[in-house]
Design a binder for these strands. Structure first.
Length: 482
RNA sequence: GCUCCCUUCGUCUAGCGGUCCAGGACGCGGCCCUCUCAAGGCUGAAACAUGGGUUCGAUUCCCAUAGGGAGCGCCA
């Protein structure tokens, strides 16, 4: 999907809320990015406003089409939809140049000819002196151009005074202008920098609330100064706390999955992921489970907790299990079908998926668990679990199992109730407890020791397959005994 | 180093000056249920970082300290 510019107009129009998610396409869609998008989206939806998707691809070196695609696929998977976009900054170059020209003409910005090497040396010297590394304004009052050097454009940041960021989650945060330097607006190759692009776009697109990660808080006063220089309205900000890994360090690959699509591939339901994410930094009393509608109606950025939160995979597991248990059967079935295909299991080669869902929804954490656990209902098990076979398919059980086989074969109806009765009756006849016969039966039919209730299990496998597997197990016992 | 942000059970959090010897959830322990695994029910252990203030009274307000995080790029 290529972004097309739909002539965004400055939105002083109304107080209708407009938020945006502006990822840079330099990799997959990060779980932290999803939460930022979620909060931003929820805020817009809650207020009946609109939500914009903008791709910040001004870093020509690192931006890729695959990343853009991954972002779109990820957002669609979790169900975060956008009303405008995806816009692309690279398609708005003309606009940035226009704004830059105005800034230069008014003297609010100036050309800087310092080389990267010079800047690096400057920073090192400052750091060595224990100073805050920043541009020293060497070209601020330069009159003439330097031959053969493509200059960058720098903002003439005020030296005096201060900037206050009105932040919905932090309150007012004030920065002294003396701490800020003249940041680069336009690179020597003509592309706008992140700060410049963001500010121009947000203003042009009429973004009323900028909801983004905490890591941008200290960048905000600089952006506000750009806005003031351009003469555009300053939006309301909300800086969300970061998501940390279990060890308190910034969430990264070594903490496990950070790519949203990896959660999809592991068999998580998007609603569970979103539910987990919304509770990171936000709460509504003691409520743990939120439907999409509830999230929208109850969410409020101003009650977001300012402290960073650690990502806890265990709680996500629990939530996913909750959703598996309580979501509508049709919903889970649909997700399971997709997941089986993803895992290379043919959903058609077994019992109806609704039945599989009903049998496993309470004993599975992920869709993947269901697929793995129900494999025996789709493919014949190999009785390869040596331990289970040795423990449960002993010679002594051969005769009771054979009797059970006969009873099962004679059943007029292949229903859980009938099957249960047969097992129960044969067990009694053989002087065994239900479980003493049930577990060997389970191993014989499923190849393992874990499955839904034995009657349900047999029903799912079907009579023919169950009897065949029972026969195979009996042969195995006699063979092993011979 | 400088600037900014943050600090309640292991984790996510409730709490918005007295209702708190701090509540819920995940996880963990025990018991019950039980044909396996789960689910479920009951139950237990587990926290206001530290030090100063303010106040009749602080988990709640203020200030330090400590700890954690972020930013300080022609990355976003």
């Amino acid at each position: 999907m290529t972004g097309r510019i739909r002539a965004p107009h400055a939105g002083l129009a109304a107080m209708t809320v407009k938020t945006r998610f502006a990822p840079s396409p330099t990799g997959f869609l990060h779980i932290g990015g999803v939460r930022t998008a979620l909060f931003s989206w929820l805020y817009a939806r809650h207020h009946g406003g609109s939500f914009v998707l903008r791709i910040e691809d001004t870093d020509l070196e690192r931006s890729t089409e695959e990343s853009i695609e991954a972002i779109l696929v990820g957002l669609r998977w979790v169900g975060i939809d956008w009303d405008e976009g995806p816009y692309r900054q690279t398609e708005r170059r003309g606009r940035y140049a226009e704004v830059a020209a105005g800034l230069l003409a008014r003297g609010d910005a100036y050309h800087c000819y310092c080389s990267r090497e010079e800047l690096e040396a400057m920073r090192q010297a400052q750091t060595a002196r224990g100073e805050n590394p920043r541009y020293n304004g060497r070209c601020r009052d330069r009159k003439a151009a330097v031959a053969g050097v493509e200059p960058v454009l720098r903002l003439r940041n005020p030296h005096e005074g201060s900037v206050t960021v009105h932040d919905l989650v932090r309150g007012d945060v004030t920065f002294s202008n003396s701490e800020l330097d003249d940041l680069i607006l336009v690179r020597s190759d003509g592309m706008p920098t992140f700060h410049f692009g963001v500010v121009v776009d947000d203003a042009d697109m009429g973004i009323t609330h900028v909801i983004r990660g905490d890591d941008h808080l200290t960048n905000t006063p600089r952006q506000i100064n750009i806005l003031k220089a351009i003469g555009m309205p300053v939006p309301v900000y909300a800086h969300l706390p970061m998501i940390l890994g279990a060890d308190g360090a910034r969430l990264s690959k070594r903490h496990g999955a950070v790519n949203v699509l990896e959660y999809r591939d592991r068999g998580f339901l998007p609603e569970a992921l979103l539910n987990y994410l919304v509770r990171l930094g936000w709460a509504h009393g003691d409520q743990e489970v939120f439907s999409r509608e509830e999230m929208i109606s109850l969410f409020d950025v101003s009650t977001v907790n300012g402290a960073p939160a650690r990502f806890d995979p265990e709680k996500l597991n629990w939530l996913n299990q909750q959703y598996l248990k309580t979501a509508e059967t049709g919903r889970v079935t649909l997700a399971l079908r997709e997941h089986m295909r993803r895992r290379g299991v043919d959903p058609a080669n077994g019992p109806p998926l609704e039945r599989v869902v009903e049998a496993w929804r309470e004993r599975s954490v992920t869709l993947d668990d269901i697929v793995q656990a129900s494999r025996f209902a789709f493919d014949d098990p190999a009785l390869s679990d040596a331990k289970a076979v040795a423990q449960h398919l002993k010679p002594a059980i051969a005769q009771p199992l054979a009797a059970l086989r006969t009873a099962l074969a004679a059943l007029p109806q292949w229903t859980p109730a009938a099957i249960h009765d047969a097992v129960s009756r044969v067990a009694a006849e053989q002087g065994l407890g239900f479980g003493k016969l049930g577990q060997p039966l389970r191993v014989a039919v499923t190849g393992g020791t874990v499955s839904p209730p034995i009657d349900v299990t047999l029903e799912l496998v079907g009579r023919d397959r169950s009897l065949q597997r029972l026969d195979a197990a009996l042969r195995r016992i006699t063979a092993g005994n011979a």
